[in-house]
Design a protein around this nucleic acid. Structure first.
Length: 583
RNA sequence: GGGCCUGUAGCUCAAUUGGUCAGAGCAGGGCGCUCAUAACGCCUUGGUUGGGGGUUCAAGUCCCUCCGGGCCUACCA
């Protein structure tokens, strides 16, 4: 490979509370996997990290609802999410847990460093405590009547009816959203704040430097990423300090490095402080799992220990952008230690479901487990990636899904493999035929593929997901165009050797398609490669050469149908099944 | 309220710094082919780029305004 690089890839870590829907998947883990697979295919050294985000109030409540200790609940849900990730062929090098010992130590370490740098403030504040629930309540877990509009189910942070922002103490007849109890009181409590306002100029300068293409060809960040970051930096009074501790039982205990933090006993760090640190911790967990030692993970994260040449790319939905552009960088930079800072943030808009939003609470839309129960992962991967919400929110409809998948996967790609392998079997047997020579038509095909494959590479490297999918599809189409024009079924009647040359090239196309398609549809790619009785996954250099990998005499087999079509009946059935409430 | 994004053929989306940019895929129509998952290929019908105004030799592309959709607004994560 011309320039072998080391690429660190992280996907926003999914919250432990329940199974994620396709909108969550397409916004972070799936495109991250695409990029990881492509980068590996190009010969780069890749570290692809994800994890479950396990702390916070919702996890505690979900565990309580399930009647389980929160640690057990998280352990169980982690396994569920891990298995679903595997089901979608997400190729994580490690899928960690933010509740790991590694993350606990690192989070406490960062807090200690930040405190030493004078970037932590201790703030005495007053929060609502529910005696019945035995806990402090986050603002949004307090309900009451809105003093502005009279809506009786306003939340303590904002009234959903009139959108007025509220303070919990503004509510009339406040009650716990958890238990309904009105036995609430305001208690004084002390919390730590990350003084990110002190780093505002430094952060702004950094963000602004990413709004334009950098030196060494680094692309500018998506507008979505930088606009959200700048908004938070400059909106109103500017970047606000953020509380990074909570009065909860479940989480990373507040410590200053390895020392106790006087006055902070019984408190834990806020999930959004420890969650991004888990990217680092999960890499350490990976090293631990393989008995690799400290240096193995530090060379990805410590610029003083080998990470200076690492390219770090993050993937996330737009709701996660503030934490990745501001809070986490403030943590990294503020530590005063040589940790690796992100180089590129790829953010996504939302995927909507059939005219509305996917909704976890309402069970609206398709969830990861349900998706896999009705179709193999490649179908979903292809549709989701080829319709990734890059320029704006996009929409999933069953009609579009059926049409796209049937056309692209079954007709264009699957049928190509089917027609050429079956034709060869009937005329030449299940062996790459010999004889004949390639001519102008073959040269033209190679030239077109040369152009398209290079374009595909460019889109993949730029993480232009939709465009990459479009180019890949065009590469598949080129095979059908070639076959149609070459018409070996006619040629074979007068000139079997000429037909043999056409077939030989076409069978090589199947192998080439396997290599090129693998990042999008890994299972089908593997099936194609297996059918060609080959294991040469090397990325194509000069296309003419790549189309000679399978020599005359090489055995192959006709594969099962790669993609069956989705019927109208199935579509209608699923449409109805997933419209309503889950379960 | 404020901010950001978005509105391009029936559908999903493209169009470097304003200058053949009005395009692609799907759907629709016609023709061809028969190796193949009734698949494939070729040709083709669709748009005064949400409405209106402005700047410019030239505007989906910049400005203003109106209408529509979405998101964010810091204690859900």
């Amino acid at each position: 490979m011309a320039c072998m690089a080391r690429i660190l890839i992280t996907s926003a870590i999914p919250y432990i509370n329940g199974i994620k829907h396709l909108g969550n998947l397409v916004g972070s883990q799936l495109p991250a996997d695409l990029y990881a697979r492509y980068s590996r295919a190009r010969g780069h050294e890749v570290m692809f990290i994800c994890a479950t985000d396990e702390h916070g109030t919702p996890a505690e409540l979900a565990a309580a609802k399930a009647g389980m200790p929160v640690a057990d609940y998280c352990a169980q849900m982690h396994e569920v999410q891990k298995n679903l990730g595997a089901g979608f062929r997400l190729s994580f090098d490690h899928f960690g847990r933010s509740s790991s010992q590694r993350n606990r130590e690192l989070t406490q370490h960062f807090a200690g460093q930040l405190a030493e740098a004078g970037l932590i403030a201790e703030v005495e504040e007053r929060q609502v405590y529910s005696n019945a629930d035995g806990r402090f309540l986050p603002d949004r877990y307090i309900e009451g009547t809105c003093p502005n509009c009279g809506y009786d189910r306003a939340r303590g942070d904002q009234c959903e009816n009139c959108t007025k922002q509220l303070d919990p103490t503004d509510l009339i007849n406040p009650r716990s959203a958890i238990s309904g109890s009105t036995d609430l009181e305001v208690r004084a409590t002390k919390h730590l704040y990350l003084r990110q306002s002190a780093m505002r100029d430094q952060l702004r300068e950094w963000i602004l430097s990413k709004t334009q293409m950098g030196g060494n060809g680094q692309p500018a960040w998506p507008v979505l990423t930088t606009s959200i970051a700048l908004k938070w930096l400059d909106d109103g009074d500017g970047l606000q300090d953020r509380g990074i501790t909570r009065d909860l039982d479940w989480g990373v205990p507040v410590k200053k490095g390895t020392e106790d933090w006087p006055g902070m006993e019984g408190k834990v760090f806020y999930v959004w402080f420890d969650a991004p640190i888990e990217y680092i911790a999960a890499t350490a967990e990976w090293a631990d799992a393989g008995g690799r030692g400290e240096g193995a993970w530090e060379r990805w994260w410590r610029t003083d220990k080998g990470a200076e040449d690492v390219r770090y790319v993050q993937f996330m939905g737009k709701d996660n952008v503030p934490f990745h552009t501001l809070s986490f960088p403030a943590t990294i930079l503020g530590s005063g230690e040589p940790w690796k800072l992100v180089d590129y943030i790829k953010s996504f808009n939302y995927l909507n479901y059939d005219g509305g939003q996917f909704s976890t609470s309402q069970g609206r839309g398709v969830f990861m487990d349900q998706a896999l129960s009705i179709l193999p992962s490649d179908y979903w991967r292809w549709w989701l990636l080829s319709h990734a919400p890059e320029s704006g929110d996009s929409e999933f409809t069953w009609e579009n899904f059926q049409a796209s998948v049937n056309k692209d996967l079954a007709d264009v790609l699957g049928n190509f493999v089917s027609r050429i392998t079956k034709f060869c079997r009937s005329k030449f047997g299940e062996t790459v035929p010999e004889g004949g020579a390639s001519g102008a038509r073959e040269a033209a095909l190679a030239a077109e593929l040369e152009t398209r494959v290079r374009a595909y590479e460019g889109f993949m490297e730029a993480m232009e997901v939709r465009k990459a999918a479009g180019e890949l599809r065009a590469i598949w189409v080129a095979g059908n165009e070639y076959l149609q024009a070459a018409a070996p079924w006619s040629v074979v009647k007068e000139d079997p050797e000429a037909a043999a040359a056409i077939v030989r090239l076409s069978l090589n196309l199947v192998r080439l398609y396997a290599v090129l398609s693998q990042p999008f549809i890994p299972d089908a790619a593997a099936a194609m490669m297996t059918a060609m009785d080959c294991d040469d996954w090397s990325w194509p250099g000069e296309i003419g050469a790549a189309l000679q990998a399978l020599p005359a005499g090489h055995g192959f087999s006709v594969p099962e149908v790669l993609f069956r079509k989705i019927t109208d009946e199935e579509r209608a059935d699923w449409q109805q099944k997933f419209a309503g409430v889950r379960n």
